[in-house]
Write a protein that binds this DNA or RNA. Structure first.
Length: 463
RNA sequence: UCCCCAGUAGCUCAGUUGGCAGAGCAAUUGGCUGUUAACCAAUGGGUCCGCGGUUCAAGUCCGUGCUGGGGAGCCA
């Protein structure tokens, strides 16, 4: 290859106002059509949704081989960038040299037509080469960056909390056990001897970085964690995965209202960021994936989210004419149908529900003056359900210890957590947002498996 | 884990009261052509998800298992 020539990515080429003349592109052939004296090749290099059209003429020395280039093949093309006389594209490349880097056999599974999401899940290693999956994974990348940018601008510090944890009762669901004990040794002795295990005690994959984040909020002020989270729940739905990414901001000197303000600002800012920075990829979803998406995003960005207490929500559900499968009443956790009714039918926009009964919420949430409810907040969004769960944390040592006693939690193993309430305890709040659920919200993709590069779910860990 | 639905060519699907296994797209070959998921023609392509049963005969009916999808629970 000509080392003097530098490769230009297709997203750069497509934005050019004037032709630089000679260009070099490398990518994969999406489709090829023959004409009388030349071949049309559409090349995609993953830098953007769109392809660049290459005109490979019969005067090329390897024209016979070029005519055999199949969908999925990798090529390197050097030629002149010229205005395209055809419709549908501004530029095209008049090839002077086409190097076939790799010829894909006709068994290449991706065809020049629409494939079902279910089929593409069975070839998760190849699906990012399609328009839709290429688009969502570019958006996923951009959104991860946007999260860091959002909090960096606000003066938050990024905190990486442990993936392996020693606490076995964080109460957020079933946990994956981490061990270095060999199955043979365990079978032989008949017991899991945790004292002989790597950490000398039971250890698990994290279900939340919140407790760690609270410690750092008491030191650095405003922090956030953003990383992988693991749940060993046997849940088989389109909204759950065993491994997912969660964003968890934690803020000192912050009450429940300010917590909701933060969450609402975040969701709005990220949505705007997606539309402004992933315009071409977002258009694919706005136009073809979910017809209701433009309205939904417009509502999210421009309308204030609804805010009401759990008690008021129960009132609305009880007085609504809608027939529910499950009865509602104070003290009962809301069912999916209730949450959907509130977000999709009643308010038709994201809804914060606050002040849930303390009996259905974790120990760390701040007990309200009524001693019946806690300063919790869940953000319910149309189409997804719960996107965010958060609370003002219980900063009063005596109240917190009483709650832990009520819930039979071993205070001694939370000694360090309780220390934060002993030494300079202040009101503070935080929340967790499922990153994949947010991606589903802004893309209209209906299954969480389709916004994760290689999803891990019950009974499925291929790739 | 529970409820419902599905599994037929590489992909998407049709297949009637049980009676010879089908279509479109893809692939291959040829034709045509500054084409846009190009077009036209021909050809090849099957463990009808697995196992067991009913029947003269099962893609079709029954049982069971597996896989996938939708919903519920749990949650982010």
């Amino acid at each position: 290859m000509d080392n003097a020539m530098k490769r230009t990515k297709i997203h750069v080429l497509r934005q050019l106002e004037n032709s630089p003349g000679q260009v070099l592109v490398k990518g994969w052939v999406r489709t090829r059509r023959d004409s009388k004296e030349f071949s049309f090749m559409e090349i995609n290099d993953g830098s953007c949704l769109k392809n660049i059209q290459v005109i490979a003429g019969q005067d090329l020395e390897n024209y016979v081989q070029i005519q055999a280039v199949s969908t999925g093949s990798a090529v390197s093309v050097e030629g002149l960038l010229v205005a395209s006389p055809g419709k549908g594209q501004k530029w095209e490349i008049q090839a002077q040299r086409v190097e076939i880097i790799n010829l894909a056999p006709d068994s290449y599974p991706l065809q020049k037509k629409r494939h079902s999401d279910e089929f593409l899940r069975t070839i998760a290693h190849l699906r990012p080469r399609t328009n839709k999956y290429g688009a969502i994974f570019r958006i996923r990348s951009e959104m991860a960056f946007a999260i860091h940018q959002f909090y960096n601008k606000k003066g938050f510090r990024y905190l990486t909390t442990p993936v392996i944890t020693g606490s076995d009762c964080e109460g957020a669901g079933e946990m994956f056990r981490v061990t270095s004990l060999s199955p043979e040794a365990v079978k032989k002795s008949g017991i899991m001897d945790f004292k002989a295990d790597f950490f000398g005690q039971e250890s698990n994959l994290t279900v939340s970085g919140q407790l760690s984040a609270e410690m750092f909020a008491m030191a650095l002020g405003d922090v956030y964690t953003f990383g992988p989270t693991f749940r060993a729940e046997n849940s088989n739905t389109s909204r759950h995965a065993a491994e997912f990414w969660m964003l968890e901001p934690e803020m000192a000197f912050c009450d429940l209202q300010q917590n909701m303000d933060q969450a609402e600002e975040l969701v709005k800012a990220l949505s705007v960021h997606a539309l402004e920075n992933c315009e071409e990829d977002m258009d694919l979803f706005l136009q073809f994936v979910d017809k209701s998406l433009p309205d939904r995003l417009n509502t999210i960005i421009h309308q204030p989210f609804a805010r009401l207490s759990y008690t008021d929500a129960i009132e609305i559900l009880q007085t609504s004419k809608k027939e529910f499968e499950f009865k509602v009443g104070f003290g009962i956790d809301l069912q999916s149908e209730h949450e959907r009714f509130l977000a999709e039918d009643y308010f038709k926009k994201p809804v914060f529900l606050t002040d849930y009964p303390k009996t259905i919420k974790p120990f760390y949430m701040r007990v309200n003056e009524d001693d019946k409810t806690v300063a919790a907040m869940d953000l319910l969004v149309p189409g997804i359900g719960e996107l965010i769960g958060g609370s003002q944390r219980e900063e009063r040592l005596d109240v917190l210890e009483k709650r832990m006693d009520e819930m039979n939690l071993p205070k001694e193993s939370y000694w360090w957590y309780l220390d934060s309430r002993r030494f300079g305890s202040v009101p503070h709040s935080g929340f967790g947002m499922g990153f994949e659920r947010f991606l589903m919200l802004i893309s209209g993709i209906k299954n969480i498996r389709d916004v994760i590069p290689f999803p891990r779910t019950v009974g499925s860990i291929d790739f």
